[in-house]
Design a protein around this nucleic acid. Structure first.
Length: 575
DNA sequence: GCCGTTTTCGGCCCGACTGTTTTCAGTCG
């Protein structure tokens, strides 16, 4: 699948044009194409073959023919030319906070700055102060920007960002001056990684709130502080942006600060079409306020169904909301149990009984214990004999607990040769068999796809665990043809997992949406190794929602009886 | 570059903050 590669090419094209001072709308058009390709569930090659590429809003004749050229030749001649027209080192500079395309262009033409090292030299010199718009303060800020860039940590996954954000929200929510306090931005949309943390507060007295925010103990640097808006850097180099708005603007502001940017652009365009204007204060017609207090009112007055934050990515949600055909998304309360949990029989840190108690506290009706199998030596994987002993222990636990069922399971290794690390006659006696790849990550796409497909075809396998193997920020997905995996899963009634561990989120939202389209059943599981990790079900459900999933498509949203009948039937995915 | 029951040309979302400035450009979200 070339989608990501072509998306990156268009992104770079936009960067180059921007530095060269091209029309901002043209730059934006390329960026939009890049984002569209990233969010595409299907292989762009298929769209070219079916002739549907030009039907996608935002992809016109120009971009379409560039995409086709790339697929045919492996490059885009226009991009190759553009690359040759500026020094390679300039592109990197765009990532420095406070340094934008205009200044980069200026520094390049006036001071021959064409790389990070040349920039650092220029910032030490005196000549830079003679440039128009340049002063002492600005140079200082750019120096700080370079330091921040060089010590950057990259985007945070949800598991790291949420605790930091919630701690700040809790403090602000306790202030008497504060009304509503909410996370906004990509964190409220539950994107799998976030660049910074956005917090929105309603209040008629923003002063004390801004002050309290900038004086939080975890703040290491105040980047900006105005009368209604402030930015700080907290420990771990994360930027946190705070915005305070009047209570009457709460809804409009929440829409605005939740984004995404593309979603907002669509909403504003829609407002304009209807003779209205939308900004962070209100939806207005002339001088009259049409809606502002609640998000629901803003969407409603735009003629839209309410769009949940997780869908606001401009991936068709605005069109669907206009036609009132948004799906009724899965809710966290729909989840009846967890189907992939470890215990201290392998590499978990708690006993089966401790995991069960934690699951009961969450209101679950069942949980499945899925310890590793023996080939995963580092995790103390179970031999067939130990798995049988564990099954007896589970019987004993089930005899003690009320209104709750512990299911017998395993996370069986899909071996390098495609076989499973546990005999079939034993797998057959289990309730939940999760099959996962933990070795041979470097194999070819055909071999890995073949391993997973043969696991799917095994009638004892119920769920494929973390189907791509990626670890956000540290390990790429292995080479796998997901389309083929999804089609096989749909055919054989095998579920694919959303592994809710925040560093995995595997499948991701885009893939979940595609899988659901193909009729694949999804299992949302936490892969917990400790009782408190069961909490990650929340981000799993959020990921499912980002993939437009309803309760119907989720295996463990079923009550136990229905789950059991689904597992018995090989037609899980077809009902 | 994309797009069109007002347009095939002329628009394209909107505002806060900062630093440099006598009225605004650049950056960011």
């Amino acid at each position: 699948m070339k989608n990501a590669e072509i998306a990156a090419a268009f992104g770079q094209f936009a960067d180059i044009l921007e530095i060269k001072g091209a029309d901002a709308f043209r730059v934006n058009a390329y960026r939009r194409v890049s984002r569209i390709l990233e969010g595409l569930g299907v292989d762009v090659t298929d769209l070219v073959e079916s002739g549907e590429l030009r039907d996608i809003p935002g992809i016109g004749e120009g971009s379409a023919s560039r995409i086709e050229e790339f697929l045919e030749t492996g490059e885009m001649s226009a991009l190759t030319e553009a690359r040759a027209s500026i020094p390679k080192g300039l592109l990197e500079l765009l990532a420095i906070p406070g340094l934008g395309p205009k200044t980069i262009g200026l520094l390049w033409t006036e001071l021959d700055v064409k790389s990070l090292s040349r920039l650092k030299r220029a910032l030490r010199g005196k000549k830079i102060l003679e440039l128009p718009g340049m002063g002492k303060k600005k140079v200082e800020n750019l120096r700080a920007g370079v330091v921040a860039y060089e010590s950057r940590t990259g985007r945070l996954h949800l598991g790291a960002a949420l605790p930091i954000a919630r701690a700040i929200v809790d403090v602000l929510a306790d202030m008497k001056e504060a009304g509503d306090v909410e996370l906004a931005g990509s964190l409220r949309r539950y994107r799998e990684t976030i660049g910074d943390i956005d917090i929105l507060v309603s209040s008629s007295r923003p002063g004390p709130i801004i002050r309290a925010f900038t004086e939080l103990p975890q703040v290491e640097e105040v980047l900006a502080a105005g009368s209604t808006k402030a930015s700080v850097r907290v420990s771990g180099a994360v930027q946190v942006d705070l915005r305070v708005v009047e209570p009457r603007s709460w809804g409009a502001a929440l829409v605005y600060f939740t984004g995404s940017k593309d979603h907002n652009v669509r909403l504003r365009g829609l407002a304009q079409e209807k003779g209205m204007k939308l900004n962070e204060y209100a939806l207005t017609r002339g001088k009259r306020t049409v809606a502002s207090k609640s998000e629901e009112a803003v969407y409603s007055k735009l003629g839209l169904q309410f769009i949940p934050p997780e869908l606001r990515e401009d991936r068709g949600e605005v069109e669907a909301a206009l036609d009132h055909r948004l799906p009724e998304l899965l809710e966290i309360a729909d989840m009846k149990g967890d189907l992939h949990v470890h215990s201290n029989w392998s590499d978990g840190h708690a006993s089966i009984e401790e995991m069960v108690r934690a699951a009961k506290r969450r209101g679950y009706r069942y949980i499945s214990i899925n310890d590793h199998t023996r080939s995963l030596g580092v995790a103390h994987g179970l031999t067939p004999a130990r798995l049988e002993a564990q099954m007896e222990e589970i019987d004993a636990v089930n005899a003690r607990v009320k209104n709750f069922t512990v299911l017998k399971g395993t996370e069986v290794d899909i071996l390098s040769d495609g076989g499973l690390d546990m005999p079939d006659d034993l797998l057959e006696r289990l309730d939940i068999v999760v099959a996962s790849i933990h070795s041979g990550f470097g194999q070819s796409i055909d071999r890995i796809t073949g391993r997973i497909v043969s696991a799917i075809e095994n009638p004892n396998v119920d769920i494929i665990g973390h189907p791509t193997g990626r670890l956000i920020g540290s390990r790429q997905a292995y080479a796998v043809d997901l389309e083929q995996v999804m089609r096989a899963a749909a055919e054989h009634g095998t579920a694919l997992e959303i592994n809710a561990y925040p560093e995995r989120l595997d499948l991701n939202a885009v893939n979940v949406r595609r899988a659901a389209e193909l009729g694949v059943t999804i299992a949302i599981s936490t892969d917990s190794h400790r009782p408190e990790e069961l909490e990650w079900m929340d981000v799993g459900v959020r990921t499912a929602r980002r993939g437009w999933l309803t309760k119907k498509g989720v295996l463990n949203a079923r009550p136990l009886r229905s789950l059991r009948s689904a597992l018995r039937s090989s037609l899980v995915g077809l009902d």
